[in-house]
Design a protein around this nucleic acid. Structure first.
Lengths: 151, 151
DNA sequence: TATGACCTTGGAGTGCACTCCAAGCAAGCG
DNA sequence: CGCTTGCTTGGAGTGCACTCCAAGGTCATA
């Protein structure tokens, strides 16, 4: 689960690395959120959260003494990141691969970097495609605007 | 199959509107492409081309006397546009709706414009999201880069 | 004219990413 | 204690966008 003892005032978990400037709903120590709280925070459904866990996309969510899920601030950060990756169009299988690398520890830094750089290139390509499409849309919209007026 | 400059003058068709500056494989008059030619031009599969037609996403593809499809330059333009819409993430159902509006004629200019403007907003949103993700990726990549070196 | 590559159809199958279900246990409140 | 709402599970179902299949007809070339 945890790859580094690095209990460094929490703010720099090597698992998650370079934590986002996101503020958490509750401070560390009281971060034992139920699944429905996480649903409210992330916008994901409970189904999806359980499914993410089942397919290995979550780094081992803690449980209450009766077996109910208790999510941490770190889990929330991870879900934020996963959500970002999701909207790049990255397949879930690739995100699972990344999660595996995280579980394997620091020795996979290189491979993780490669994966992220490849994703970065994809994002750049996608942005370029979207820009291109935007130009086409603008042309057509202005056509409809002028024709709609002149007729 | 060379991309001949082609006399793009070819009367701006109201169906397609604001023709793209694309050059066609063959000039108008000789534009009766088989499905496999269109596969080569567009990168779509023959299956997908037939499926597009079945669901009403194509504006009536011409047929040879024996019933085989013969695509025109105009069909190619339409497919180009559809492909652009596709990569904005627009659902096929919405593209079919647009195709229906085109079939209904000039009276639907307003609605077509609305649809395209809504798509335009979606594209802008998506670009913003991707930029956001890019920032996260860059932070992580540079983390891996420096940590990968210093350890 | 024969051969083989290409084209036709309706309908069934695939892969992805969820999404839902049933049956049962858990938690908080009056 | 009973009630309601919430959480658990494995497995089945859904919706989208293709993707493929079988069985047969067509076309170009030798």
């Amino acid at each position: 689960m945890q790859t580094t003892p690095a209990d460094t005032a929490h703010t720099a978990p090597a698992d998650i690395c370079s934590a986002p400037p996101r503020s958490h709903p509750r401070p560390d120590g009281e971060d034992r959120y139920t699944i429905s709280e996480v649903v409210a925070f992330t916008g994901l459904t409970a189904h999806t959260l359980r499914w993410y866990e089942r397919i290995g996309l979550m780094p081992h969510v803690d449980r209450s003494h009766t077996g109910q899920r208790r999510y941490s601030n770190r889990d929330l950060d991870w879900l934020d990141f996963v959500t970002k990756l999701r909207l790049t169009g990255m397949p879930v299988a690739d995100m699972v691969r990344y999660a595996e690398l995280v579980r394997e520890g620091e020795s996979t830094y290189g491979e993780r970097k490669d994966l992220l750089e490849s994703t970065r290139r994809d994002v750049l390509t996608r942005i370029a495609e979207l820009r291109d499409t935007l130009a086409v849309l603008d042309t057509k919209i202005s056509f409809y605007a002028t024709e709609g007026i002149t007729r």
